[in-house]
Amino acid sequence: MKRKQRMNRLGTGLFTFISIFYVLPVVVVLFNSFKKKSYINLEPFKLPNETTFTGLDNYATAINQYDFLKAVGWTVFITVGSVIVILLCTSMCAWFITRVRTRVTRAIYILCVFSMVVPFQMVMFTLSLVTDRLGLGTPWGLIIIYLGFGAGLAVFMFCGFVKSIPIEIEEAAMIDGCSPIRTFFSVVLPIMKPTYISVGILETMWIWNDFLLPYLTLDIKKYKTISIVIQYMKGSYGRVDMGAIMAALIMAVIPVVIFYLSCQKHIIKGVAAGAVKG
């Protein structure tokens, strides 16, 4: 028994050590974000001192020169808008195609599953042509694109859950005089709450971090997301301002960490659920 205790203590020590190493890259970026830009590449692993410390200047540059906060705003708008639209539309669609069994609905289901394995590169060029032609290169248009491209996973996961709901509950509601819409919103939707959370989290993680889809479809001169701004800062336009990039990286990581720590339980459950279904 004593041996086991000692092993456990050793394990905790080892994992504490690994955990510190695990967060170290972000910490390095954090203290570099307080250094003058010319010192960042010279001595990236040294803490800022009197000569290299520059306070919040880098953050000010990122916000003022590169409109970073505007990018955060658009990213929030696109992510929240898309996730709400995806959850609402695909859950309704999934309920419909599970309850109404025709050749058409089965075909839609198969197409959705198929779309999950298609890599984005397959459709990226033609998708950007289509969005251009339809004038969907705005954050509002992007929500429709995300609904279309993200429908596969969402419909698949919702269908998996709808199949497990006993149909008798819905039949009872309909016999009592509920219309299908009322049945869906007051009977089916509350039962599916856990699936809404899982799908919502998976789609949020994807859309928040997505780079290529908004980069190719958005009108970049007017609208940028966080990933696009960071790539743009690093791009070949003029001199690269390492200080502003460090600040931007930290500002990109902070909301994610807050989101993660505040709904960690749901995120981990969502990931496990999504994996089992995938």
């Binding site: 459709v123 429709i144 491209f149 309909m174």
Partner: peptide, 29 residues
């Protein structure tokens, strides 16, 4: 019950289907 739901396909099915066509089916083909 199936029949009753079926009549509501413009509300339940159409939004996703249109977006899916724009965002996936047309670009893929």
């Amino acid at each position: 019950m199936e029949k009753a739901i079926k009549r509501y396909f413009p509300i339940f099915l159409l939004p996703t289907l249109i977006a899916f066509t724009i965002g996936f089916i047309v670009p893929f083909i």
